[in-house]
Amino acid sequence: MKVLVPVKRVPDTAGEKSFDPNDRTVDRESVESVLCPVNEFAIEEAVRLKENHGAEVTVLLVGPESAQPVVRKALSYGLDAGLQITDDAIAGSDALGTARVIAKALEGQEFDVVLFGNQSTDARTCLVPAAVAELLGLPSLTYARHLEVGEGKVTVHREHEEGWDVVESTLPAVVSVVEAINEPRYPSFKGIMAAKSKPLEVSSLADLGVEPDQVGLANAAASVHEVRDRPPKEAGTIVEDDGSGSAAAQLADWMVEKKFV
């Protein structure tokens, strides 16, 4: 069995935590970048497929050269090989542009299952997995909270607002996973050391046969033309309870005044 895990490099959300909410000059360059935490659940699932089905797992990252540590990090969980697509022309792609590059890279690979995160912690569009599936003409079994791969067949529990759908599909298939699917383990020391020498191939758009006019900022179908700060929030009313729950009456008054009751 062959498994592909597309992973993304994102700014560390916790890194922003130290920023003063009153001081709105967020210096993005200084924010540490990490492997998208949602991808850790996909990686854990891939590791289990290795353990239970002897799967061979390749990590795929679309991003600049400086993102290479993120591929190594993904490999440190015990995965087999890395593939990174790096090209200046990719910068500023929208989700569908990124999906085009990922799909092209996958076309050159053999695989049974592609394991995405359901979303990335920065863009959070959730569009990439389904778009890649469409480009490859494959089923998109997204939001998986449970995954079972059998002979030529995959079963997924797709989480939704009311519970989940049990779905079955032929292979190959595109799957995206939610946090509830597992508890990722940490990479072992041995894994971290081994990751340094795992094969890692870097390809350009030309290598993949992608025309530069399919991707990048200038060719994004959806583009951002203004970014502004959220207006600062006015300080709220804070009351201290005396230990009897009496502050609840003040809160209830406020809720009545605001017409929530």
Binding site: P21, K233, G236, T237, I238, V239, E240, D241, G243, S244, G245, S246, A247, A248, A249, Q250, L251, A252, W254, M255, V261
Partner: peptide, 24 residues
């Protein structure tokens, strides 16, 4: 969370929440 709260109650939820339910 108080930095973004319009209304904050500093207190033990075990007291405040049932009392709030009662008041409402």
């Amino acid at each position: 969370i108080f930095q973004i709260a319009d209304f904050g109650v500093v207190g033990d939820l075990n007291q405040v929440v049932p009392k709030l339910t009662e008041e409402l």
